[in-house]
């Protein structure tokens, strides 16, 4: 579960499912064609791959997700911080702010997050 990866292009496809689920495979292939210009075979190949990875599942021609989008990206961020900053969130923030200063809005968002976390 912890090792799930998705390429940039795959995630665009995953977005279609997340935004429209539950979605029939036919509708999915149609949307993929419109948004990504993909043939049916391509859509099916990628869908199968994502299902094998455990992110989505197909059931009687309908596709649903096993992990929500937020959950998935949360896992990705966790892994990233784990691997790059030895799990230290402050270290990550320091690196993040080094190149880009935080806007007042962003600072306010962070403050709110920490407050909510402390209250739990």
């Amino acid at each position: 579960m912890a090792e799930i990866q998705m390429g940039a292009v795959e995630s665009k496809f995953a977005d279609i499912i997340w935004e429209n689920e539950p979605i029939s495979t036919t509708e999915l292939t149609k949307q993929s064609e419109i948004l990504l210009g993909w043939k049916k075979t391509t859509s099916y190949t990628v869908l199968k791959r994502l299902c094998d990875k455990g992110i989505f599942k197909t059931d009687k021609g309908s596709v649903t997700s096993l992990i929500s989008k937020e959950e998935f990206y949360a896992l990705q961020s966790e892994r990233f911080v784990e691997e790059t900053f030895d799990g230290s969130l402050p270290a990550f923030l320091a690196a993040f702010t080094k190149r880009k200063a935080l806007s007042p809005d962003e600072i306010e968002q962070l403050r709110r997050l920490v407050r909510e976390y402390e209250e739990e």
Binding site: V9, T45, V46
Partner: peptide, 16 residues
């Protein structure tokens, strides 16, 4: 390259 995303006319992005 079948798994690619259109960038602009005639140009596609692919992560493979």
């Amino acid at each position: 390259t079948s798994e690619s995303v259109k960038h602009s006319k005639g140009i596609y992005l692919c992560d493979k």
